[in-house]
């Protein structure tokens, strides 16, 4: 257990996640616990952007004497990740020989990941699976903490499940953990949190882990589609100038903002590279002046190959 070593050099715990998840709360529980166990503690975080969905991290160092408020790179004894991609981001911080990696497989996909609007594009979320990582670190555990907490009847106790998992790595008595946790949670949820804490311990100790080769639990599943090739060069955007009255509807409505009115007040495709072929302008042109087509689309029309599973395309009914 790590705590047996804390007298000789500090123990370093790095807690990471996404703004709003409770990184700071989890850190505070640990810091308070270490304090009550008689250690010097430094807890360092950078907030400000924390609640705006950005990447959030908190360093907790405890021992007989702690100097630097931040954990030197490659010296984190435990990396507790409350979100999968954030765990991967901070992996280089982990002590390579002994470091323990505890990760929630929960995925929080940021709006940035949905920027590629090309035909068949996947969310730009990291594709590394837990089983590809856990064997390559000294100690690796992946838990679906939200699911574990929901199984106990309160999904909001997910962070306490993670604290339970963390407790197995550090070795303070479970009762001491629970005493601190109970002061941080609403009094009516103390029992739920106690169960959640023990659930986290059980998951780690019993090796009661989810199927790691499965893709992590995902709010937005990313079933890849057949057409991986960008269709840009094949998008054909046509307008019948004599039908266009320059109403500007298409220019305003284009999600990629790639249309403009030319000097004659006729709509033109000003930024062909940005066009994803979504056909919104075609649908909404009051004058029926616009036609959008691309290679993949014509293939679909000819019935040679559908770019997406037909069953998942109710839009074709429109």
């Amino acid at each position: 257990m790590l705590v047996n070593r804390a007298d000789s050099r500090p123990i370093n715990v790095l807690v990471v996640g996404v703004g709003g998840q409770g990184v700071i709360m989890v850190s505070k529980v640990l810091a308070q616990l270490c304090l009550e166990q008689g250690y010097e503690v430094k807890q360092s975080e950078v907030h400000g952007m924390a609640k705006r969905g950005g990447s959030v991290f908190s360093h907790i160092r405890f021992g007989a004497r702690v100097w630097s408020p931040t954990i030197p790179e490659g010296e984190a004894d435990v990396l507790l990740a409350m979100e999968w991609a954030e765990g991967l981001r901070w992996l280089p911080s982990l002590e390579p020989e002994r470091g323990i990696f505890i990760a929630d497989t929960r995925r929080i996909v940021p709006p940035f990941a949905f920027r590629n609007r090309r035909r068949g594009a996947d969310p730009a979320y990291i594709t590394t699976r837990p089983d590809e990582v856990l064997d390559r670190v000294a100690g690796g555990y992946a838990i679906d903490a939200t699911r574990e907490a929901e199984a106990l009847g309160n999904g909001r106790a997910a962070n306490t499940v993670l604290l339970g998992a963390l407790s197995t790595a550090l070795g303070f008595p479970a009762e001491d953990w629970l005493a601190v946790i109970s002061r941080f949670v609403p009094s009516k949820t103390i029992e739920t949190n106690r169960q959640a804490f023990h659930r986290g311990r059980t998951v780690i100790e019993a090796g009661d882990l989810p199927d790691l080769s499965a893709p992590p639990a995902a709010p937005a599943a990313a079933a890849p589609v057949a057409t991986a090739t960008p269709a840009t060069d094949r998008v054909t955007w046509r307008i019948e100038p004599s039908w266009c009255k320059g109403c500007n509807v298409c220019v305003t409505i284009c999600p990629e903002r790639c249309l403009a009115l030319d000097q004659r007040k006729v709509a033109v495709l000003a930024a062909p590279d940005a066009c994803t072929g979504c056909r919104l302008c075609e649908y909404l042109c009051p004058d029926l002046a616009i036609t959008v087509s691309d290679g993949a689309l014509s293939v679909a029309i000819e019935g040679a190959a559908s770019p997406q599973p037909a069953a998942a395309d109710p839009g074709s009914r429109r």
Partner: peptide
Amino acid sequence: CQSCMNLGCPAIGWSDGWHDGHH
């Protein structure tokens, strides 16, 4: 069409469904 995605709202993401090769 992704018009709503252009707001950058963190509550809006892609679903499993597809339309015309787009999420």
